[in-house]
Amino acid sequence: MSNSPLSKSIKTLLTGLIPAVALASAVSCAGTSGEQDKKSESEDTPKITGVGTPIKESQLAKWDISVFFDGDNLPPGKGTLTEGEEIYQAQCAMCHGEFGESVRGYPKMLGGSMEEYIETAKHNENNVAIRGINNHWGHAPTLWDYIHRAMPFFAPQSLTVDQAYSVTGYVLYLAEVTDGSVEEIDADFIKSVKMPAADLYYTDTRPDVHNKRCMKDCYSGEPEIVAKQIKGNVSVGDVDK
C-alpha cells in the first residue's frame, strides 16, 4: 500500500466516484488505529499471547512504595525527632506553619482536639476548618506513606526513607498525637502509634436516605425558601471545602 492511500481515496470520494465502503477500508489501511469491530467471543477466539513483558517483583522495588494502614511494606530505616524538626522547619513550615497551624490556607497539621471535632460534628457546627492529623486520620503508617510519596509539595519523592521517618515522627508530635518522648523514629514506632480518630471510621452504610417518588400534593403550606445573601457568583466568608 502506498503512503497516502487515505488522502488519495478522499480525493476520489470528493469527486463522487467511489462509494463510502471503499473509503472505510482505505481508512483502516491507512492505520489510523480505527477500532476493529468486536468479534463475538467464540471457541476460536485466539488467546492473548505475546503482549507485555514479564516482570519480577524485585524489579519493582523502587516503584512499590505503598504502605498499608497496618504498616505492611514500611521499609527498613530510621530517623530522629531532631532531624525531623530541621526538615520540617526548612521544607514544610512555609505552607503548614511553624507549629502546624497552616499558612495561606494550606492544610493544618494540628487540628482541633478530638473532643472538639466530635462535639462540633454532633451539633452540626462547621468543623471543616479544624480538621487535621490529630482528628481525621485513621492510621499513622498512612501518614508516613503520604509524606514519603507526596511531600514536600514542590519536590515530591525527594525525601529519603530515613528523612521520611524523621519528619513523620515530627509531624505526629506537632499534631499532638505523640508526646515527643521517643527520639528514634522507625517502622515499629510508626506502627505503634494509635491515631486519635482510628475508631471513628466505619464503612459505607448507604443508601441511608429513602425518598419516595411522590407525584401530587407532596406537602402543604408554603415552604421556607433560602436564597443567597450576597449577590454574584460566589459568596465570601466561612466556606466549606
Binding site: 466530635i118 462535639e119 454532633k122 468543623n127 480538621r131 486520620w137 471510621y201 464503612t203 459505607d204 448507604r206
Partner: peptide, 18 residues
C-alpha cells in the same frame, strides 16, 4: 482517610463511600 470520607452527625467518619 483524610479526604473522601464523610463526617456524620454521630461524630463518626464514614469511609469507602465509593
Amino acid at each position: 482517610t483524610r479526604h473522601y470520607t464523610d463526617t456524620t452527625d454521630d461524630g463518626r467518619i464514614r469511609q469507602f463511600t465509593l
